[in-house]
Amino acid sequence: EIEQGFLPKGWEVRHAPNGRPFFIDHNTKTTTWEDPRLKIPAHLRG
């Protein structure tokens, strides 16, 4: 299961009806299937 707590500020994870997680960026009011944490360099992750 995906943990909400480690998402960047302003992001939220939800699950589509088929169970697939998607990510909501409230900063830009966009959604994506890609986990935003995967784009953060390892040394900047919490």
Rank of each mutant, 00 (worst) to 15 (best):
G19T: 00
L7T: 06
W33L: 06
E12V: 05
T30C: 08
E3D: 05
K9S: 13
N18L: 03
W11A: 02
P41E: 10
V13K: 13
V13N: 01
I24G: 00
H43Y: 13
H15T: 13
E1N: 15
F6D: 15
K9M: 07
I24K: 01
P36K: 01
H15N: 11
H15Y: 11
D25H: 06
P8V: 00
T30P: 00
T32C: 05
P21Y: 15
R20C: 08
L44R: 09
Q4Y: 13
P21Q: 13
I2K: 14
W33F: 11
H26Y: 02
H26L: 05
H15D: 13
F22C: 11
G10M: 01
H43L: 12
F22T: 05
P41G: 06
G5E: 11
P21C: 12
E12A: 05
T30A: 07
R37E: 02
W11E: 07
V13W: 01
L38Q: 12
Q4N: 12
A16C: 11
F22Y: 14
L38I: 13
T31A: 14
F22Q: 09
F23P: 02
T31W: 08
A16L: 07
P36M: 00
L7Y: 01
R45Y: 12
G10N: 11
V13M: 15
P41Y: 04
A16W: 01
L44T: 13
K29H: 09
T32D: 00
E3N: 15
R14T: 04
H26V: 06
W33Q: 07
T28C: 03
E1R: 12
P41W: 05
H26A: 03
D35M: 03
L44S: 14
R14P: 06
Q4E: 15
K9A: 11
T30G: 04
L7R: 00
F6G: 15
P21H: 04
E1V: 10
A42Q: 14
H43F: 09
T28W: 00
F23G: 04
I24A: 02
T28Y: 04
E34T: 06
T31P: 01
G19P: 03
E34P: 00
I24Y: 15
T32E: 03
H43W: 07
E3I: 11
T30I: 13
L38Y: 06
V13P: 02
F22N: 02
I40K: 15
W33P: 04
H26C: 06
F6T: 15
D35G: 04
K9T: 09
T28H: 07
A42S: 12
P17W: 06
P36I: 01
G10Y: 02
K9P: 09
D25E: 07
H26W: 07
R20Q: 15
H43G: 12
E12Y: 03
E1I: 14
P36V: 00
T28D: 07
N27I: 12
I40L: 13
D25W: 01
G19W: 01
E12L: 00
K9G: 09
K9I: 06
E12M: 01
N27D: 11
E3Y: 12
W33I: 12
T30F: 05
T30M: 10
T32H: 13
K29A: 09
E34W: 08
N18R: 02
N27G: 06
P21L: 11
I2S: 10
P8G: 03
E3Q: 15
N18K: 03
P41T: 10
P17A: 12
N18C: 08
G10D: 02
K29T: 04
R14Q: 11
T31Y: 05
D25A: 01
R45N: 14
N27P: 00
L7Q: 06
P17I: 14
L44V: 13
E34A: 10
H15K: 15
T32P: 00
P41M: 07
A16D: 13
H26S: 05
D35C: 05
T30K: 11
E3M: 12
R20N: 08
A42P: 12
D35L: 04
P8S: 00
F22A: 03
E1M: 05
P17N: 08
E3F: 11
K39Y: 07
P41C: 08
P41K: 12
P17H: 08
F6E: 15
K39F: 06
I2E: 13
N18M: 01
T28A: 06
F22H: 01
R45Q: 11
R45C: 14
K39M: 12
W33D: 05
I2V: 07
G10C: 03
R37V: 04
P8D: 03
V13Y: 02
T32M: 03
P17S: 13
P41D: 10
L44G: 15
R45H: 15
L38G: 13
I24F: 05
E3G: 13
T30L: 08
F22I: 10
I40G: 14
T30V: 10
G5F: 10
T31K: 04
K39E: 15
A42T: 09
T31N: 03
L44N: 07
T32A: 02
T28S: 10
W11K: 06
H26N: 05
N27L: 06
A16T: 15
V13H: 03
W33Y: 10
P36E: 08
E1F: 13
R14I: 04
R45F: 10
G10R: 03
K39V: 10
H43C: 09
P8A: 02
F23C: 00
H15I: 13
L44E: 12
G19L: 01
F6I: 15
H15M: 07
D35E: 02
G10S: 01
P41R: 11
Q4S: 13
P41L: 05
I40D: 10
R14E: 04
I2T: 09
W11L: 03
R45M: 09
T31L: 07
D35W: 01
G10I: 00
A16V: 05
E12W: 03
R45L: 10
L44D: 15
D25V: 00
G19Y: 01
G5Y: 14
P21I: 14
P17G: 07
P8L: 00
L38A: 12
F22R: 03
Q4R: 14
H43E: 15
E12K: 04
D35V: 02
P21F: 04
D25I: 02
F6H: 14
V13T: 05
T28N: 14
E1Y: 15
I40E: 09
R37C: 04
E1D: 09
K9Q: 12
T28P: 02
R45T: 12
R45K: 13
G19A: 03
G46S: 14
T31H: 04
G10W: 02
H26T: 07
I24H: 05
V13G: 02
V13C: 09
P8C: 00
V13F: 10
H43Q: 14
A42I: 06
I2N: 14
I24Q: 00
K39A: 12
D35Q: 04
D35T: 01
Q4W: 08
F22L: 11
D35N: 00
T32Q: 14
W33V: 09
N18V: 01
L38C: 13
L44F: 06
A42F: 09
F23Y: 08
R37D: 00
G5V: 10
R45S: 11
W11P: 02
G5Q: 08
G5D: 15
P36H: 03
A16N: 06
T30Y: 02
I2Q: 15
D25L: 01
P21E: 11
Q4A: 11
D25N: 08
L7F: 05
A42L: 11
P8H: 15
G19M: 01
W11I: 05
I24S: 00
I2P: 00
R20S: 12
H15G: 05
K29M: 08
T30Q: 09
K39I: 08
P17R: 10
N18Q: 00
R37S: 05
E3R: 07
P21W: 06
P36S: 00
Q4G: 12
R37I: 02
D25S: 01
K29D: 15
F6W: 13
K39N: 12
P17T: 08
P21S: 09
A16M: 09
N18G: 13
G5S: 12
E34D: 07
E12D: 02
N18S: 09
I40A: 14
F23V: 03
E3H: 03
L44P: 15
I2W: 08
E12R: 02
F6L: 15
R20P: 01
F23N: 02
E34M: 13
G46C: 10
E3L: 06
K29Y: 00
K29Q: 13
A42W: 07
W33A: 07
A16S: 12
T32I: 05
L44M: 14
H15L: 14
L38W: 12
F22K: 03
L38H: 08
N18H: 03
H43M: 09
I40Y: 08
R37K: 02
R14A: 10
E34C: 08
T28V: 02
K9D: 13
F6Y: 14
L38D: 14
T28R: 07
T32L: 01
E3P: 09
K39G: 13
E3S: 13
R20F: 02
D35F: 01
E1S: 07
H15S: 12
P17Q: 04
T28M: 05
E12T: 08
P41H: 15
R45V: 13
W33K: 05
T32F: 04
T30D: 07
E34I: 11
T32W: 02
D35R: 04
K39C: 15
G10K: 01
L7G: 05
K9V: 09
E12Q: 08
T30S: 11
Q4L: 13
Q4D: 08
E1T: 15
P8T: 06
R14N: 02
I24L: 14
H43V: 13
K9W: 05
W33C: 03
P36W: 00
E3A: 09
H15C: 15
K39P: 11
P17L: 10
E34Y: 08
H43D: 10
